Simulated scan of single mutants.
Amino acid sequence: MTGAKSTLVLTAAGVAVAACVAGATPTSAAADAAPLCKITDFTTSLGPVQAGAGQRYSTLDFTAYGGRTCVLRDDLTNFQFLGERARPLPTDADAPGSGNGVTIAPGVVGHLDLHWTVVGGTPFVPVSLVFTMPTDDGANAAPWTGGPVNGAGRIDVGPLHT
């Protein structure tokens, strides 16, 4: 009986390890070989917006240019809403900054979860959301298609995933 349990446990563990290795792009050999993304390696857009009771949810989507493959880390910083003529608007955002990354490659899009509200203060409608990467010079801007943001410009930035 003990041998059967051990075999079952080893079989289950073997399946779990195989499933983890197959689905863990960031720790696979391909991800280890891919360079870290630079701000010029990808385009950024806002995903579809879901709304309810004054709350808004979307993703900031990262797509690698052409046939490039790179590892995008979640340590994006300096989020800033911009209005017409690149005028800075109130912005209060923090990224997770855990240093975790995902591999973006042809056909693979990275997503950073976003949440904001239209309640509180006088809402405004940004033109874009800009951010920087601490490991690279320059900034990347996503056209803002998410509609109004509350007057304080608070946006919650969630984990990076594919």
Rank of each mutant, 00 (worst) to 15 (best):
G153I: 11
A13V: 13
R68Y: 06
P134G: 07
P126C: 03
R87L: 10
R68K: 15
L89W: 08
C70H: 04
Q50I: 09
R56Y: 08
D32I: 06
S128C: 10
G138Q: 08
T91L: 04
G67Q: 08
E84C: 05
G121E: 05
V21P: 04
A24C: 12
F42Y: 15
N100E: 14
R56G: 00
F62M: 00
V71N: 05
T40F: 06
P143M: 10
D137Y: 09
R56M: 05
N100M: 14
N78H: 13
V71A: 10
C20M: 10
W116M: 03
P35S: 06
A64N: 00
S128I: 14
G14T: 06
G153C: 04
S98Q: 13
A29Y: 06
L76H: 04
W144I: 12
A51V: 09
A33E: 09
C37R: 04
P159I: 13
A22Q: 12
G107A: 01
V118N: 03
A141F: 11
S128W: 14
T162A: 11
L114E: 04
T27R: 09
L72C: 07
D61L: 05
V71P: 00
S45G: 06
D32S: 13
L72D: 02
R154Q: 11
R73S: 15
T117L: 04
K38S: 12
G54S: 09
A4M: 10
V119R: 14
G54E: 12
T69L: 03
T7S: 10
G66C: 02
G146A: 02
P96F: 14
P106C: 07
P159K: 14
W144N: 00
F81Y: 07
A142I: 02
L8S: 09
A51L: 08
T132R: 09
C70T: 02
G99M: 04
A95H: 03
L60M: 10
F81S: 00
A33Y: 10
E84F: 14
P90N: 00
L36C: 03
I39T: 09
T27E: 11
T2L: 14
F81G: 00
T44S: 10
C37W: 07
R87C: 03
P106W: 08
V119Y: 11
L114D: 00
A93F: 07
L8D: 08
